[in-house]
């Protein structure tokens, strides 16, 4: 905490000097490039980004890209189930930015007025069935998951991927009896890729990120229950300027291209 406040003071001091230098220098100096200079001024220091487990690959990449675009900035990332992260943030965990896997989970933070400004939707995701490469239970459709003897693993209904699974169950009329209800989508994927489970209900992006360790089977009805991912700068952000810059980076063209490449849809 104290280190954080020292850093914040140092950051403020640096910012003050930089801004003064800039406003004094820019009009007079013809060589000053406003673009990159403005970037270095707006983003400094380090920020902590809390993001849903399903964003692990994309946000790790975006954090690196952001650091590369803003020398001197470091981005710390923490990935877990969205609800878990909300619990941590509510308990005072030091985070600057939060990206949730659904709007309902983000709403918990906005109602608790822990969010600065309004969250911005930046991506969408749909559910898919993941099976081990050999597909031991010969799963071909969502209805197959309810067959007796098929070991299906899903997210617990209190986490976003579980809520989405329940929505798909409702729209398809298929009631699953899973062998396990995990706390995060990565736990579901782990149980499938390790071969412990016959099938798991995860996001399209998880299947894509898992490469050859699992196979994906589309759920046509899932398109009706799309998860929308919002991102927001937190009220308790120690470094709001850089946090906002990261926010814009994710919602901007580079963020979009990384997310689309990973299989996310546009909001």
């Amino acid at each position: 905490m104290s280190l954080r406040s020292v850093a914040a003071v140092a950051f403020a001091a640096v910012l003050a000097v930089a801004v003064t230098a800039c406003s004094a220098g820019t009009p007079a100096s013809p060589t000053a490039e406003s673009g990159p200079a403005a970037k270095t001024v707006s983003a400094r220091g380090s920020i902590t980004v809390f993001a849903a487990a399903s964003l692990t690959a994309t946000f790790s990449e975006l954090a690196k890209k952001f650091e590369a675009a803003h020398p001197g900035v470091s981005v710390e990332t923490s990935f877990a189930g969205s609800s878990e992260l909300v619990a941590q943030i509510s308990a005072g965990a030091p985070a600057d930015v939060f990206a949730s896997a659904d709007t309902a989970t983000m709403a918990k933070l906005t109602t608790a007025s822990l969010v600065a400004g309004a969250p911005v939707n930046f991506a969408t995701n749909v559910l898919e069935i993941a099976v081990p490469p050999k597909n031991p239970a010969a799963v071909r459709s969502f209805a197959d998951l309810a067959r007796p003897g098929t070991k299906t693993v899903v997210c617990a209904s209190v986490v976003p991927c579980g809520a989405a699974t329940v929505a798909v169950e409702r729209s398809t009329g298929v009631a699953l009896s899973p062998v396990s209800e995990e706390n995060s989508v990565t736990d579901v994927l782990g149980k499938v890729s390790s071969g412990e489970a016959d099938a798991g209900v995860v996001y399209v992006t998880d299947v894509k990120a898992a490469g050859s360790s699992v196979r994906g089977i589309a759920i046509p009805r899932a398109k009706q229950s799309v998860n929308t991912y919002p991102i927001a700068v937190l009220k308790g952000a120690a470094n709001p300027t850089t946090a906002r810059a990261f926010d814009r980076f994710v919602t901007g063209p580079i963020g979009r291209s990384v997310l689309v490449a990973a299989g996310f849809g546009a909001p």
Partner: peptide
Amino acid sequence: AGSLQGTT
């Protein structure tokens, strides 16, 4: 073991 009400 996983996590399922009543079983694990």
